[in-house]
Design a protein around this nucleic acid. Structure first.
Lengths: 221, 221
DNA sequence: CGATGTGAAATGCTTCACAGCA
DNA sequence: TGCTGTGAAGCATTTCACATCG
């Protein structure tokens, strides 16, 4: 299931290059996985392929979006309007996947009132008021670690049901709130592991394959 | 193995709060995994625990660092000094894990020459010259998609052995170069999946657990 | 005693191989 | 004939359960 976004990125690139139909073989080689895996993955969502021909790329993207719950708009609130917060607010990937930046928060008076991508930055203390104006589904925390727990509490109080935390800080939230962590240095750490073992002692043992790169080991429920 | 960075973050937080010794049980509940899994994971690196007592947190961090290849300094070059590039350059997580920002690149004349965190921004065309001044192990691409392939080529030409790509663009690199993709919206997509299934039709089937959040399905070799 | 380290069982995921359909 | 969709086999990871040691 975590591979679905990978397929999507490939499908979109294929669409841009004019390809309209794609085989599991082609998708697999682009994603560097087994073709049977692609078919199994896609078959979990339904039967969208045409035997003998392959899959219709545009239709498949739609179906994957539906499977991922991306066939509706998710209002996102971002707390911490530093470089990372701005990068996320601008991100094409957000807009393209139906994530709408509904609110921006920062406690720095110098930033409050500033417009980023057409959205005015407000103070976290206004959160409950903002939530009254429009529903907020997902909270993204890009504040310093010291501010993370407080803003998480405020988000929960405002009815946010899931939080994505980029701050290097473990958070406490009620069990019904979905919480995931992202650490931008994790991929580098994985690279470090590979690099040191590739160039290092050389072929003394089996090299484990690292698939996941998340900080979020916990399934909800 | 992808869980090791998670343990580390928890261990560091425990250290800061004054804890010096930790049991697999405690680590497991913090990481929300099984205690046996923690012990298995750690035993792959060696036998660092004391039976009856647990693990020494500081010593364990050291050993995990060693296992991940983080016991040496990795020089990193970042291409694309927008918000994301700056966020990464400033990132505490980089410095804390021995990643040193050795060079910053951008093709925008308005940015070239600017100092970010004590490092001067230079033009990507200078890469081979920069590589002559100091070795570059890891390249990070945070440029727009249209510039990504070109700068990747230049990095490879300059001897960079692994590339982390944040640009929404599939890249071609020689097989000996380690390439991984990061998409900042992937975690949001996972959340979207959970949210729509939690609030949606309600308990008609088993909910798959999504562990990995990477765009990098390919092991090297 | 309490917690680690580890064979062995259980579970889940991946791959194979082929039936079935356009 | 070509490629999907899927049972069944194969492989890897996770969990259990307990011997072992400080």
């Amino acid at each position: 299931m975590a591979r679905l976004p990978v397929y999507q990125r490939i499908l979109e690139e294929l669409l841009r290059s004019g390809t309209t139909t794609v085989s599991s073989e082609l998708l697999a080689s682009a994603a560097q996985v087994n073709a049977a895996k692609v078919r199994k993955d896609l078959s979990l969502l339904g039967s969208f392929g045409t035997r003998g021909a392959g899959y219709d790329a545009a239709f498949l993207i739609e179906q994957i979006d539906r499977g991922l719950g991306l066939d509706r708009i998710w209002p996102v609130v971002i707390a911490g309007i530093g470089h990372l917060g701005r990068a996320l607010a601008h991100s094409q990937g957000f807009a393209a996947r139906n994530f709408r930046v509904a609110a921006l928060l920062d406690s720095n008076p110098a930033i409050i009132g500033e417009q980023v991508d057409g959205v005015v930055v407000r103070h976290p203390d206004d959160l409950s008021q903002i939530a009254g104006e429009e529903p907020l589904s997902i909270g993204v925390i890009t504040t310093p670690a010291s501010a993370a727990q407080r803003v998480a509490d405020q988000m929960v109080g405002a009815g946010v049901r899931s939080i994505l935390n980029f701050a290097p800080q473990m958070l406490e939230v009620p069990p019904e709130v979905l919480l995931r962590y992202v650490d931008l240095s994790i991929e580098l750490q994985v690279m470090s592991f590979y690099l040191s073992h590739l160039t290092g002692e050389g072929g003394e043992g089996r090299m484990p394959v690292i698939r996941s790169i998340g900080l979020s080991p916990s399934p909800p429920e």
